[in-house]
Design a protein around this nucleic acid. Structure first.
Lengths: 165, 165
DNA sequence: TATTGTTATACTCTATAACTATA
DNA sequence: TATAGTTATAGAGTATAACAATA
């Protein structure tokens, strides 16, 4: 990889971009789009991921730490700020009195729906230059990469988890 | 988009992933890989991007702010920390005595080479499940997305910029 | 003893506003 | 006046280590 870590790459005229470079550049492009959009709602990427997780789960702090690959003390701060803002609440776990579950409030649910809908629209726009069959090809290739990685790391991409309490 | 903002997505069995979802997930995956790898060298993604830019440029603080899309005060801090660490130096600009150019030190150059080589290797590994022609297809489709976006925003992806002083 | 979560602390990253020094 | 950069300040995000409560 030569210059894929910055948006305006190598000072060489019309060089061929390999799969590695394009993927890295794309990841910066996509993250930039998401980050700017989230910021319009006063959300960071991490907060948005958090809300996305909470849409169909009521995980413990520990579950969140695992999903987001963050230290549990980082989750404490993340939830503190989200709770202060009224988009999530801590609820005591009934089964284990040490643990705490985190739930979206109605306001949080509404917020995450709006943000993720915007994300969808933003990335769809980004892909507008590809034809539907091209998008399908892209999607299929990327899916294979995602599945291979998940398998590699022993993660079931489609698992239903976080059994209640 | 339903669940692409978190690594372990929707609790539905084997749902079809569309191009938007896969792209968003992929961007998180790639950024995670880069971030963890950079961290091994005590670098953030931003520091690594900075070093990547400096490999073939000696930009002013202002140039850096534009490339990284950050406020100039953020660049001050970024360069302060990098300079303290001995990987970059500030050099006075001869033409305009207000401005400052930033240059890699030998140590910085060596560091960025090692990190970017690792990035390359990491992302190559990620793509190992695709055949060479599939990688070429992926690369070509992603390139078109990148070029379309750059054109949309009036950026010449292949421009040579930052004329010295 | 081990696990869950919080607190104390420290550092990076980022922005806004006010400032200095040039131009 | 306008631009280049720094400083002061504030807040988010992150981690490590020590701690309390519970298992």
């Amino acid at each position: 990889m030569t210059a894929a870590t910055h948006r305006i790459p190598h000072p060489k005229k019309h060089r061929e971009l390999n799969a590695v470079d394009t993927l890295v550049q794309l990841s910066f492009l996509v993250q930039g789009i998401l980050q700017r959009r989230a910021a319009e709602y006063d959300l960071s990427i991490t907060q948005t991921r958090l809300l996305g997780i909470l849409r169909d789960r009521t995980p413990t702090m520990n579950d969140l730490a695992k999903h987001l690959v963050l230290d549990k003390s980082s989750i404490t701060g993340l939830i503190d700020r989200a709770e202060r803002r009224g988009i999530v609440v801590r609820v005591p776990s009934t089964a284990d009195r040490r643990s705490v579950r985190v739930r979206l409030t109605d306001e949080g649910r509404s917020l995450v729906s709006r943000v993720l809908a915007q994300f969808d629209s933003d990335i769809s726009t980004l892909l507008a230059s590809l034809s539907p069959p091209e998008r399908a090809t892209l999607s299929s290739l990327v899916s294979r990469v995602l599945v291979a990685d998940a398998t590699e790391h022993g993660v079931d991409l489609f698992a239903t988890s976080d059994k209640q309490n």
